[in-house]
């Protein structure tokens, strides 16, 4: 049984200008100790997927559809009260913004302790002692002293490590990391990714990593799900995505990587881009939403939405014209 199974997730926001369907239909499974990366450009719904798993979208104008199963238990039936017991304990989150995600008025130690006091029933003293261990675990030097520091006294990278310490404090089954390295310097990124890798190796934590950075994906992910306009268009082991991308959108994303820059006739290497714009999220027509931007689009693409097909073991793609073979 998968640790996490998301089935036909749909997230709709009610706004003054009508509904916004941020996530249309997303399904995936996450195994124990697996790192799955959700990749896509801004607005594709990847962060919304991440936040709807622990039901952190909160507001009353959000409509959630589908189900989220944790070790087979359907969380969508859980009351808010029962979800509180799950959050921070079984499913925890590392957010994108280390600068604002910690409370400026409380010490690092008390913010880590809070989650331990909530779920582990530790005494205040024991929780603080555990917090020191956690800071050491995420590679913060001089943890004994840093426990009394306030967030503003730490750098962005250090704050993100504190966030990770909070997230892993109760040894969660699933860690959701929403662009955890986007706000950090490249030199800091590698260190943070290394923490995730060690957590997975040592504790068997399953990780959903949201990112738009294919470099991060190549570095750490076991599997990749490519999202476009609220749907997963291609899902495959990381090696397969880079070696044999099948969906035209995936190939477009990879083509935009500097390392994949294509040699032009004039002898200069240029990045390829994907023409056109992301479709409006207010409608969900029965068609391939990438078709208007796709070079291989045909009449079939706008006649009906393509279903996910297996093109190899563990490699599925939703496309009528999947590309075959490696990219140039």
């Amino acid at each position: 049984m998968s640790v996490l199974a998301v089935e036909h997730l749909r997230v709709e926001f009610g706004t003054e200008n009508g509904p916004v369907i941020a996530v249309k239909d997303v399904s995936f499974k996450l195994e124990k100790g697996e790192i799955l990366s959700l990749v896509g450009e801004s607005g594709c719904g990847k962060s919304t997927v991440a936040m709807s798993i622990p039901r952190l979208l909160g507001d009353s104008n959000v409509t959630l559809g589908g189900s989220v199963r944790l070790n087979g238990v359907d969380l969508s039936a859980f009351s808010e009260k029962r979800m509180q017991a799950v959050r921070g304990k079984e499913i925890s989150v590392v957010f994108q913004e280390p600068m604002t995600s910690l409370n400026p008025a409380y010490t690092v130690g008390s913010q880590i302790s809070e989650v331990l006091l909530r779920h582990e029933g530790l005494s205040r003293r024991a929780a603080l002692a555990r917090a020191v261990e956690l800071l050491e675990l995420v590679g913060i030097p001089d943890a004994q002293r840093r426990i009394a520091a306030f967030p503003h006294e730490l750098s962005g990278g250090m704050r993100q490590r504190v966030m990770i310490a909070i997230a892993v404090a109760c040894d969660p089954l699933v860690l959701i990391a929403d662009e955890p390295t986007t706000a950090l310097d490249v030199t800091i990124q590698a260190g943070v990714l290394d923490i995730f890798r060690r957590l997975r190796d040592n504790l068997g934590t399953s990780i959903v990593l949201i990112t738009h950075d294919l470099g991060v994906v190549a570095d750490i992910a076991d599997r990749v799900a490519i999202m476009y306009a609220g749907r997963i268009v291609e899902m495959a082991p990381t090696v397969a995505i880079f070696a044999a991308p099948t969906h035209p959108y995936t190939r477009g994303l990879l083509g935009a990587l500097p390392s994949r820059a294509v040699m032009q006739t004039d002898g200069r290497r240029r990045l390829t881009d994907i023409p056109g714009l992301v479709p409006s999220p207010s409608t969900d027509p029965d068609e391939c939403q990438f078709a208007p931007r796709c070079a291989s689009a045909s009449g079939a693409c706008t006649a009906a939405r393509p279903a996910a097909d297996l093109v190899a073991v563990g490699h599925s793609v939703s496309c009528y014209h999947p590309a075959v073979g490696a990219m140039l």
Binding site: Q84, V86, S92, T100, S101, A105, R118
Partner: peptide, 19 residues
């Protein structure tokens, strides 16, 4: 953002408000 962080820790609404 830090209130959302507090919620992600599983604390009650009243503790979120306290933050």
């Amino acid at each position: 953002d830090y209130v959302r962080t507090a919620r992600s820790k599983g604390v009650s609404r009243s503790r979120e408000v306290k933050h």
